[in-house]
Design a binder for these strands. Sequence first.
DNA 1: AATGCGACCAACCGCGAAGAT
DNA 2: TATCTTCGCGGTTGGTCGCAT
Length: 295
Amino acid sequence: MGRGRAPCCAKVGLNKGSWSLEEDMRLMVHIQKHGHGNWRALPKLAGLLRCGKSCRLRWTNYLRPDIKRGNFTKEEEETIVKLHELLGNKWSKIASCLPGRTDNEIKNVWNTHLKKRLVSAEQKPAATNDPEEPPLTSSSSSPHHGGNKSDELQHDPCLHTRDSSVVEVIEIPIDPTMDMSSFFDDALSNITSSSASTQLPDALVVPDGDFWSMIEDNSACNEGNTGAWLEYLERELELELDLREAAPNDLESLMRDGVGMEEDPVSCYFQQEPPLHPMQTFLTSEMVCETNHEV
DNA sequence: AATGCGACCAACCGCGAAGAT
DNA sequence: TATCTTCGCGGTTGGTCGCAT
């Protein structure tokens, strides 16, 4: 029980459901500039009619700049399966081993894909040796379906199947020092605060859609309100480069070499996560692939 | 073309745990 | 010790999309 816990969301006058583009922008700009020291106070400071919890979820599951977008690779899926064998339903721990993936996303993938796959793999006798089926090793014995037994396995180096046999667990190296939340806190604290107001200009009409699709929609960026919003965002984030005008070759060199990291605190912030180049925050994986393939 | 259905996934709720004050 | 706050989890919901009929 949360001791003295205040109820989440005073359920009066607060927005629920899907986030609008304006809300995304407000949250993103506010966090980029000021960080998220106090989630409860953040919505008010950012001018959002949301509860802090909702803001935190939106940020961690969707807006965070290091989130990897797109389908899970086979390697990632196998990693999830193996880590689930080790850790059980410790989605955040599993997520910490999969850079760019959120615990919610992993949970969804597990519940919708991997669990079913394991069940079907279990139903198929191992003797069939179906080459299409991923190995999944011991997972065919499905250590967890049938209940939340995750904690039982947490410190058990071996997995016990239902027929009492013991199977070997493949060890996945986990960096215990990896703490994404503190990583972001540290990174955000390095951003020099600007004197500009976080309030969005009232004159700007918020375009329809969501944040990333707006960013991703290359063609739509050049005209209308979307363009105005992007320009506003770039000003707020002090981004000097206009990606919309960058040619594919330019983008590739930007991805490779970076631009103005030393000068641009926001870029420095983005740069602190090694697998992600700062510019990737404004590029979809599709765009990056496209760029790489075209050259 | 319209409808139904299932899959997928973002988002929510309620709760316990843990850290900070 | 009590309180406040955030984090993390399990479970669930509701909207959207694609496919079959």
